[in-house]
Amino acid sequence: MSTIEDRLRDAMAARARTVPDDGLDHLRPAPRAARRRGAGTAAVAAAVAVAATAFTVVRLAHPSPAPSTSGVGVTSASPTLQVSIYLCGDTSPYRGCRKGAATEREKERVRQVMAARPDVAGVEFEDRRKAFENFRRSETNPRLLKVVTVEDMPESFRVRLTPGADHAAVARAASRLPGVSNVIDEACIRDGFARLGSGDGVVDGCDFNGGG
């Protein structure tokens, strides 16, 4: 089968291909004027802020707090990871979206149900434009960047959880609501990376499809 060398070649080539030929050039000027000293620091700050990078996740990944324990000693640096609830659009291919785009009523219901949960600290709506901005910032595939428009982006709710909350339970509950296309549990993804680091398996089951 494929050797480690082949896998490495393939993965690196694929990652490199995601760097567009010229697609992003207009975003930054050619290096005419020399940059001030310390520009590198700004670069790092920007990178850390955006940090849609698999690389950094690894450095930070640490075991998740035990799911069910009641608010005992908050795991010190426990980050507030979100559960992202994506809403059906006109063309969403998901099972839960057969009836078309989520209605205003359905959206409001998702917000209310989530906000009412004791394990939810906050619910924020992310509209298409914001989603598109995030996408432009984190996506590196030039072909995707070229064809995807604002209208292609899904609306979503970003749900912040209280420390110690059972992420999977929240995600599963959200996925059952009408108008929800799918739900992504970011903590699950992160913990998946942590497991990966300890040689214990891969990221799996972090995506809950709506309508089921």
Binding site: L8, A11, A54, V57, V58, L81, I189
Partner: peptide, 30 residues
């Protein structure tokens, strides 16, 4: 800063990346 949450892979990126290659790249990064 210890602000791990800022550095998590965005849901979009995670959903779009291929699992097997990402595994390799993560290991490489480590």
């Amino acid at each position: 800063t210890q602000r791990s949450s800022d550095l998590a892979d965005s849901a979009e990126t995670a959903a779009l990346l291929g699992e097997s290659r990402r595994e390799v790249l993560l290991a490489l990064a480590r």
